[in-house]
Structures are given as structure tokens and as C-alpha cells.
Simulated assay, not measured.
Amino acid sequence: MDSVVTASSPVLGKPLVHFGKRVLERTASGAPSSDYRRLGVHPLTPHIGAEIDGVDLSAPLDAELADELKQALLEWKVIFFRDQHAFDAESQLTLARVWGEPEPNPFFPKTATAGVSRLAKDADSAGNKNIWHSDHSFMAAPALGSVLRAVDIPPAGGDTMWADMAAAYDNLSAGMKERIEPLTAEHDWVHSWGAMMTADQIATHRQSLPPVEHPVVVRHPRTGRKLLYVNEPFTIRIVGLPEDESRDLLHELVLQARIPEYQVRFRWQPGSVAIWDNIATQHYAINDYYPQRRVMERIAITGGPLS
């Protein structure tokens, strides 16, 4: 019998209500517990998101401290830091290299510091829509993670949310897990980023960014834990399924990121920094601060092919 039972909406016919407890494991079953000597770790939920203290991110990191940061990210999937007022773009690049080489987003505006992208929304753009997503899933080797720092934040609003896609996978029914285990999905950027481009701009980007395929269920490249790897803007179809079946299945799977039990929400303050695991999570930047201004700078970290 399936371990998860759902009721259906009489209107939509889609799973709506979850009966019984959810499986909300911070790490894979049987993984050893972590011991931090240099960091203070303060969970924001039991399984995703923790604020970290005891570290100045603008100062050089020794090997032990870097290892503890890497372990904290694997354990909590997104980690947050407060009062990092001396943390600038160069510090951000140095920190990102704890995990790997910086990877520019092909569509974001660049800054004077190579590898750093600026995400600025003001009165003309702050009301633009956002959506749950995983960065760079439209690339053959999606970003492993990201480092984001607050540059200019509104007096209220502008929070960011992250969803734990291991929890999303864990809570699928046994029947759904069996169904999607062998499947792959096509990811593409044209329906999202391309909506803001001319035909010539799309053709230019298409030369280096063709559609790619990833497994619907991937194993995390560093923990081996199974994750649901589909997202609303970039996953466009399930390979090999009829169009209607692909659409219905994909609709059900992408909605898993919207379940509050899988999420953590972070309120930005001056000097705040977030680092997230881009394979294990999806994120959503909340656009509720119009007409105020919000400016962030982000570095993505190069990843590898998923399996």
C-alpha cells in the first residue's frame, strides 16, 4: 500500500489533502550526525534552513572552518548569515570558491566584479512575477549552489523562500516514486527568459543553450540522496510520454515545491548573506515590496551533469 494518502479536489481532481505525518528528514536516513566546533547553527525549521554565527565571511577561512561550512550546507540545504557588513563582492567570490568555480548566469546583468550578477528591482520592475525554480536547470551541468548578499533591501517585504526537494521526493507515494524513477525531463529557457527577448536574441542564445534533459529523480552529487528535479519555468515536458500525460504528471510534480512543510522563509536585513544548495532546493523571491527598491548580488557555483 502507498505510504502517502491524499484526497482529491472535486474541481481539479488533483491531490489536495495529505493524511498522516510527513517525512521531513534533514539528511538521508543513516547519515552520521554533524559536530560543529567553530560554527553556531540555529535551525529555522527542523529540516531546511539554519542561521549560522561565529564566522566573519569577509575574513580568510581556514580549512577547518571551510569544511564546517560545507557540512552545514549539505545538512541544512540553505544557510544564512547576519551582520556581514564588511562582506563585499570580492569576499563573495572568495567564499563561493569554497564550493567551486563561479558560474555567470547568461541572462543576468553583470557587475564590475567578474562572476557576480546584480538582481535589481525598483519601482518600474518590482511588481514582476516570480516562480519556484532551480537556477540553471536549463544547462547541461546546472549550478551546484549560489551565494546571495543583500545590497539594498526594502523596509518591509522582499523575503526569499526555499523548498526542500528531498522532502518533496520522500513524501511522494510509493506508486508515484516507481512511476517517475526511470523518467527524464526536458529543460529549456525559451518559455521564461525568452519571453523578454527578440527572435534574434533567442537565436543567438540558442546556439550555446539548446534544450537539455535531466532525470526526474536525481541523486545529489555529494550526498547521494534522492531528489525531485523538476521546476515550473524550465521543465517543459516529460520525455517519451504523450503530451496530455506529460502535462498532467509535470503539473503534479512541480506543485510539490509549493507545500509549506517543505519550505523555509528568510527575512533579509542589511548585511545578510544566504548560501543554498541549488540541486537540493528550489527558491522563490517574493515580490511584495512595490514600489520600494531591492538590490541583491549573486554568484552561482559551477556544478556537473546530474544522474
Results as ranks from 00 to 15, higher is better:
Val23Glu: 12
Asp122Lys: 10
Ser34Gln: 10
Thr27Ile: 08
Ala141Tyr: 01
Ile131Gln: 12
His47Tyr: 12
Val55Asp: 01
Met139Val: 03
Pro43Asn: 05
Ala50Gly: 04
Asp83Arg: 15
Glu68Phe: 15
Gln71His: 14
Asp88Pro: 06
Ala123Leu: 07
Ala86Trp: 00
Asn130Arg: 08
Asp62Phe: 08
Ala31Leu: 10
Asn130Gly: 10
Gly40Gln: 14
Lys121Asn: 10
Lys129Gly: 12
Asp62Cys: 05
Asp56His: 07
Leu144Thr: 00
Arg38Leu: 14
Ala114Tyr: 02
Arg22Tyr: 11
Ile131Tyr: 10
Ile79Asn: 05
Ala140Ile: 12
Val23Phe: 04
Ser58Pro: 02
Thr27Pro: 00
Asp35Glu: 14
Ala123Tyr: 08
Pro46Thr: 12
Gly115Ala: 09
Leu44Ala: 14
Arg82Val: 05
Ala112Cys: 01
Asp83Lys: 15
Ile52Asp: 00
Val116Trp: 06
Thr27Leu: 11
Glu101Cys: 04
Leu144Val: 00
Tyr36Lys: 13
Lys77Met: 10
Ala123Cys: 09
Ser33Ile: 12
His136Leu: 13
Ile131His: 09
Gly54Gln: 09
Leu65Trp: 11
His136Phe: 11
Val23Gln: 13
His133Arg: 06
Arg118Ile: 15
Asp67Tyr: 00
Pro109Ser: 13
Thr111Lys: 07
Trp99Thr: 07
Leu69Lys: 03
Gln84Met: 09
Asn128Ile: 13
Gly54Ser: 11
Asp67Ile: 02
Leu44Ser: 08
Asp35Arg: 15
Leu95Lys: 03
Ala89Ile: 00
Leu61Cys: 04
Glu64Ser: 14
Glu64Asp: 15
